[in-house]
């Protein structure tokens, strides 16, 4: 294939341009083949028309989408109060697990037990046990709200994971930073607060972003104990219209939020890799 030769290009640049063009053509051709196969073959399947009607029904989507968005605000709300609570509790658990003083030994044991238990149980089980169990004690309103206990279940589970990430972050700060801070006469506590933690937290921001994204999705698990959030609302519409399109609508709403967030987390991760190398 003739390549337009810009004046003054080196042998290397010409070669690389040729390679780039080649990969571009191959990528385009392969993408076209796959898309064409999907577009031609999928509609040829015997059940396609039915599936299209019950999952990709434009009319149902238009009718339910605004209500689904409203219901999504419930997810956002639960997310908005759970996330800060998780950050704080996670950090406290991480610090408890690193406590050195013998008086704090029970705290260390508690931290270890906490992370073991809540990382070891499926989220949905924790949501069920806490969400149904605690209101079962016969608490008066508003303390029997599934919002409170469901959120607590999420907070407990996610704190366990978040604590482990914070601990990895604390370990990632080089011991020489501690030595330098101690040599200046700072106490262990001051070293942790002023020198180690700020660096540790910065190091784990990308990983914690991924936890936030996972939390945003897991808020839907609360639908099993009552709150009418988006997944539950979609279920209501499914029954009402005898059609699965509301689920697809819900998925679209999640993706609108999570794809940018995921891309951003990946970007942060990539930037950190660059800084470290």
């Amino acid at each position: 294939m003739p390549i337009p030769e810009a004046a003054g290009m080196t042998r290397r640049e010409r070669y690389e341009q040729k390679q780039r063009l080649k990969s571009l053509i191959i990528a385009a051709a392969s993408t076209i083949c796959v898309v064409a196969a999907l577009v031609i073959i999928v509609p040829m399947t015997p059940g396609w028309e039915k599936v299209q009607k019950s999952f990709f029904n434009g009319e149902v989507l238009a009718k339910t989408f605004p209500k689904l968005l409203d219901a999504f605000m419930v997810n956002v709300m639960i997310f908005a109060w759970s996330a800060p609570a998780i950050a704080i509790l996670g950090l406290l658990i991480a610090l408890a697990r690193d406590a050195k003083s013998p008086a704090l030994f029970p705290l260390r044991i508690f931290g270890a037990a906490f992370t073991d238990v809540f990382r070891g149980v499926p989220v949905i089980l924790t949501v069920y046990l806490i969400g149904f169990g605690i209101p079962g004690l016969g608490l008066p309103r508003p303390w029997n709200s599934p919002f409170i206990w469901g959120s607590l279940a999420l907070v407990l589970t996610y704190s366990a994971y978040v604590a482990e990430i914070f601990r990895a972050g604390i370990d990632s700060v080089h011991p020489s930073q501690r030595a330098a801070a101690l040599s200046l006469g700072l106490s262990e506590r001051q070293v942790m607060r002023d020198v180690v933690l700020p660096q540790a937290i910065r190091n784990v921001v990308p990983s914690q972003m991924n936890m936030l994204i996972a939390l945003q999705k897991d808020v839907s698990l609360l639908s099993f104990i009552g709150p009418v959030e988006i997944f539950r609302q979609a279920g209501v519409f499914k029954s009402l219209f005898a059609n699965f399109t509301p689920y697809v609508g819900a998925a679209i709403i999640f993706l609108i939020v999570t794809i940018p967030a995921t891309r951003y987390a990946d970007y942060l991760m990539a930037r950190q890799m660059r800084e470290r190398s």
Binding site: S176, Q177, A179, A180, A181, L182, S183, L184, G185, D194, V195, Q199
Partner: peptide, 15 residues
């Protein structure tokens, strides 16, 4: 330690 200053090979400034 407050009376004894120390400087390290790899600077160890707080980044």
């Amino acid at each position: 330690r407050a009376k004894i200053g120390m400087v390290f090979q790899n600077f160890n400034l707080f980044p």
